[in-house]
Design a protein around this nucleic acid. Structure first.
Length: 477
RNA sequence: GGCGAGGUAGCCAAGUGGUAAGGCAGGAGUCUGCAAAACUCCUAUGCGACGGUUCAAUUCCGUCCCUCGCCUCCA
């Protein structure tokens, strides 16, 4: 592949754009922190997963295969608490929400990770890592049977989040009585293994330190090691995970393996709603189902979530979904005009266009994607091309090339055009059809008053008439 | 208090040391009996405020105001 430009991606650690390349020169291994499955994921969660999805698509379309690992967190305080509340086993409870998560992912056109490991299925891996950390002097067992990571033992701690002298701040940040933390040597130390507590119920595993369960951060370290190795190409997640989650992962992994862990860090900014933060109490925390119930499609939701740069906050509003619908409709129209020009009547397989595709007339949009995944700029470029392209002068071959390029760029962003509305068959009730025909007759007779009267009647019934060259169409309003 | 992100038209949102992409919404026109569609065109002397550097700043620097995130288990 001659001089394919690599994706330039901002790196959280060095705070500058760095070309994304696989260390082994073949396949790019990356880990994305997945959901904690204790309820429906909200659109803020999906903003992150969609950004990771676009990342993967761009890398793959630029010619580099990926190995995508995204975990399922199926054991932590909340999953335990809520499964107990629901009277279900932890497994049943988390499987339920995992299933729903997968449905949402599919609806939003997210590529499935190649590996999707669950925390509960990697307890031995996590125990092994704790043992290594104790052996190397980075962890210690506390009086209550919990095991903690000794932050002071890792000189690079804080490098990712750029937090300095954290110890000094901890007094202020720490709640007055945190009974969970009494046995730690230092406030900054964090749990690798949490000793069993009564409220954990049956959710405990045997370990060299007694029954208990792994700490949250550990699963990602253990599972990334298992599937990607001690060092891998990129790690990503929501911006809020920088500290402490990713900082702790780095500490654990580097100290346990002696490797350097992730080479590149990508973090996605938060989604805001109506100019403010999303929160349950404000009633502005939307799930995909919420929006579907309001009549919006997952494609529209994806369009909105992708329409702001991943490193900046994005303001979500219901109105933006309306805007997305119109914008998508315009893309559909453009696509149809091109398709008509090619003479291809039936919708072709999306893959067929993409497979041999290249950015072509959408080169500028593709370059925007390669420059730190600038999707909003790319979309601007796409519409610029759509507006300025005179398809009328195209040959069938031109149209086919343009069609392939359009699908290539849309595929990179993960946009799937909705079914063309005009092609949907709608059953028109007989009485409506009759009225429409009466109007047509009146129109032919140039009886405008009667024709308009009938049009009004139809509109009142919820139907709209559109005259065409040599006939008319009746459609639901 | 520390670290970070951001404040660009009615709404959403790119971008640049040389005079503001794109989407939505809105407006005008052509064409249609009307309507729809289609096509054409228009819509920020302005980029939070105030200073500074510069021939030139929305873009660089400084101060300030506001919003949002993180500061031990929130994407």
């Amino acid at each position: 592949m001659p001089d394919k430009p690599a994706l330039l991606l901002h790196d959280t650690l060095t705070r500058r754009p760095i070309p994304v390349t696989p260390a082994d020169g073949k396949r790019l291994g990356f880990y994305g922190c997945g959901p904690t499955v204790y309820g429906p994921a909200h659109i803020g969660n999906f903003r992150t997963f969609i950004a990771q999805d676009v990342f993967r698509r761009v890398v793959e379309l630029s010619g580099t295969p990926t190995l995508h690992v995204r975990n399922i967190t199926d054991v932590d305080d909340k999953t335990i608490r809520d499964s107990v509340k629901a009277g279900q086993s932890l497994t049943d409870f988390t499987q339920h929400w995992t299933k729903l998560f997968h449905l949402d992912c599919a609806a939003l056109n997210l590529l499935s990770p190649h590996v999707e490991p669950k925390a509960t299925e990697h307890i031995p891996h996590q125990i092994k890592m704790i043992e290594d950390l104790i052996k190397r002097g980075h962890a210690y067992k506390a009086g209550d049977g919990s095991v903690y990571f000794r932050v002071a033992s890792f000189a690079d701690y804080g490098k990712l989040s750029h937090l300095e002298d954290r110890e000094l701040r901890l007094g202020a940040a720490q709640g007055a009585n945190d009974s969970d933390e009494y046995s730690k040597d230092a406030l900054a130390d964090f749990a690798l293994w949490k000793a069993h507590k009564p409220e954990d119920g049956a959710n405990a595993w045997d370990s060299p330190w007694g029954r208990g369960r792994p700490g949250w951060h550990l699963e990602c370290s253990a599972m990334s090691l298992e599937y990607l190795g001690a060092e891998f190409d990129l790690h990503s997640g929501g911006i809020d995970l920088i500290f402490p989650h990713h900082e702790n992962e780095i500490a654990q992994s580097c100290c346990a393996t002696g490797g350097h862990f992730a080479r590149h860090w990508m973090h996605i900014a938060h989604l805001m709603v109506d100019g403010g933060k999303m929160s349950k109490s404000l009633g502005n925390l939307y799930t995909l189902d919420d929006l579907k119930q309001r009549g919006f499609t997952p494609a529209e939701v994806r369009y909105v979530l992708v329409s702001g740069h991943y490193r900046g906050p994005l303001n979500f509003t219901l109105h933006s979904l309306d805007a997305a619908r119109s914008a998508l409709a315009n893309l559909v129209k453009f696509e149809k005009v091109l398709r008509d020009k090619t003479g291809i009547m039936a919708p072709q397989s999306h893959d067929e266009f993409v497979r041999n595709g290249n950015a072509g007339i959408f080169e500028a949009a593709w370059l925007a994607l390669l420059d730190d995944l600038n999707v909003p700029k790319a979309l601007g470029c796409v519409f610029g091309v759509v507006n300025s392209t005179k398809v009328a002068g195209f040959s069938a071959a031109d149209a086919k090339a343009a069609l392939g390029s359009l699908h290539f760029i849309l595929d990179a962003i993960g946009i799937v055009l909705p079914e063309i509305i005009a092609e949907k068959t709608v059953t028109v009730p007989d009485d409506i059809q009759q009225l429409a025909e009466q109007r047509w007759v009146a129109k032919q007779a140039k009886n405008w008053a009667a024709a308009d009267e009938l049009r009004k009647k139809l509109e009142a019934a919820g139907w709209v008439i559109k005259d065409t060259k040599d006939g008319f169409e009746v459609r639901p309003k």
